[in-house]
Design a protein around this nucleic acid. Structure first.
Lengths: 123, 123
DNA sequence: GCTAGCCTACGAAAGTTTTCGTTGTGCTAC
DNA sequence: GTAGCACAACGAAAACTTTCGTAGGCTAGC
């Protein structure tokens, strides 16, 4: 399970696709040193969270696990830990923390419908 | 922000309402020592996450912050950190990790509707 | 060739979280 | 009273995360 600092780096890589340490570090905007970001990314590579390839003089990193899979893992863990398995409570917490536009709410409804259809197929 | 071990304890207290260390420890079912749970709960009390009151010979603890508020904080943090602020993605991750029954999906829809009504009022 | 600038590597320190052993206290039953 | 039991308190160690200083390598420009 990625830690907080690791998750921040993953989020950047999810946005950029693949990036150098410099790019990630600048994008993070934290006020810590470049070598801190580098070290964290090196550890993440050791753990298997990132993969690394050469490019000219420097290294290019990218997430080695699909975003969706990591997100599923994190959401599932939180769901179990803090929300008693209730997806409704989780969503309520999220929407209370950061209200969504009507458009977003509609998108959620569309997604729920597709889940329903899936259930229909199997039963 | 509560840590992992702290969150597990909070979850138990949310279920039990108020409980002694012994009750929490047994409920947790982890294979660590009683004193570990005690120490963690003492630290949580210092941090202000729990309040303590006397009962007979032992102490009774309970969460000092409403469950909903803590859940909102946690969900909001994760939403921002790992899901780019998209509540839809968060819910997708949760449902992918642990499929919900049709009844649960319907409950979510009801909740969405009430959010819509709230939006309607303000605009 | 030498210097400046950018990068990686490494190791250690600082900070947190989690764990547990030991000790002291009060209560109960014998 | 005293042995046994359950609990609280404390301190320290272990494990893990996060941070950074320093050193070494490569390239471009002078």
């Amino acid at each position: 399970m990625p830690t907080a600092a690791e998750l921040d780096i993953l989020a950047v890589l999810w946005r950029l696709g693949a990036a150098t340490v410099r790019e990630v570090h600048d994008e993070l905007g934290k006020d810590n040193r470049y070598t801190t970001t580098l070290k964290t990314m090196q550890l993440m590579t050791e753990k298997g969270l990132l993969t690394r390839s050469e490019r000219f003089g420097s290294h290019v990193y990218q997430a080695s696990v699909p975003k969706e899979q990591t997100q599923r893992q994190i959401a599932g863990d939180l769901l179990k830990r803090a929300f008693g398995g209730s997806a409704r409570s989780l969503l309520l917490g999220a929407l209370a923390a950061q209200p969504a536009s009507r458009k977003e709410l509609d998108e959620i409804r569309v997604m729920l419908d597709s889940f329903d259809r899936e259930k229909g197929k199997s039963s």
